[in-house]
Amino acid sequence: MKRFDCLKLIAAEAKDALVVSSAGAMTLEWNVLRPSDGNFRVRTLGLCSSIALGMALGLPQRKIIALDGDGSLLMNLCSLPTIARMQPGNLLHIVFDNEVYEASGSKKTATACGTDLVGVARAAGIKKAMWANTIDGFAQAVSSAMTADDLCFVGAKVTAERTDVPPYPIDEVENKYRFIRYVEKTEQIAIIKTNLPASYA
């Protein structure tokens, strides 16, 4: 499977879901397919699943999608038992497993040598964890996870290739502000408050 084709299917289903994506080319591809202030790009390798868990716990009424990679998840495997423990029913965790550290010279990851990330997720306590082996199977898994109210983990083996897309258009701080303002607007809440100067008091 091609990651870009899978991302297209997610974009068709995502609606207003908040999407956290791991460091690497996938984020650029996703941003082209679903440009939105509801996208958050992760810069710390491994932290995608944990940031998504924090969002899912903080906003339980909103669907949160984590777009993770094998190298990223392998670095933060302990996020899986924590996610399983908290059981956020609004979290869909998708892992694109291309078996290499794509952004770092394409050296093999442990999944190229037998590690089964869906098996790890299931053993960690995530009951709804499955591999999608075909593009149709992937479409079906994402579609049913988007309407379900329980925690879902989908693994997809993809080829190690990237689609030619433009660079990410904003830096980290702008990403943060745009994301927060988007959440404030769509949830009708105030997150960053500013105070009147002391002389007004």
């Binding site: 944990s50 940031i51 998504a52 924090g54 969002m55 899912a56 903080g58 943060k176 927060i180 997150i191």
Partner: peptide, 12 residues
């Protein structure tokens, strides 16, 4: 740290 960052971004 990641969990707290994510939760902060949605208002916690």
């Amino acid at each position: 740290i990641g969990i707290c960052a994510g939760a902060y971004l949605v208002g916690k």
